[in-house]
Design a protein around this nucleic acid. Structure first.
Length: 126
DNA sequence: TTTTTGACGATTC
DNA sequence: AGAATCGCCAAAA
């Protein structure tokens, strides 16, 4: 599976977050099999600005629901605006009803080896 | 090759 | 309970 580096895999997971839902740095790290690499997830998102397809980085917050990455967007209010446009309420840099909006890649995504494999049709079985 | 760097999270004080 | 400290680890310098 691994012709993609850690950063690109983070981006893939973030792209899979449904609009109106959010997840955390730590949850993504756990899904990727590196439960201690939460900081790296943030570092990866920092490098996602020019990535294509676009990475909806505003849907990633810290484990308490705070918008800790807001200063890395075009404007400090961009992150909140994007979340609110998806129906998520934010007050004082914190997501309201965080539990209700939380989306856990571990629970909703297929096993990483499957998720990161290319389409079955062009993936010759080893 | 070694050092620096964080958009975290847990642990400790 | 809130603040400070510590470990983490891939990427870039």
């Amino acid at each position: 599976m691994g012709d993609k580096d850690f950063f690109e895999r983070v981006w893939e997971v973030v792209r899979a977050i449904p609009p109106g839902r959010v997840t955390t740095y730590g949850a993504i790290a756990r899904y990727l099999g590196s439960p201690r690499a939460a900081r790296l997830v943030g570092y990866a998102l920092n490098a996602s600005h020019s990535a294509y397809p676009p990475v909806p980085a505003h849907r990633v917050v810290n484990r308490l629901g705070y918008l800790t990455g807001k200063f890395h967007f075009p404007s400090p209010t961009t992150m909140q605006e994007r979340l609110e446009s998806e129906g998520i309420q934010v007050q004082h840099d914190r997501i309201q009803h965080f539990e209700a909006h939380f989306w856990d890649p571990v629970a909703h995504l297929p096993w990483p080896e499957v998720f990161f494999s290319r389409s079955c049709t062009e993936q010759p079985p080893l």
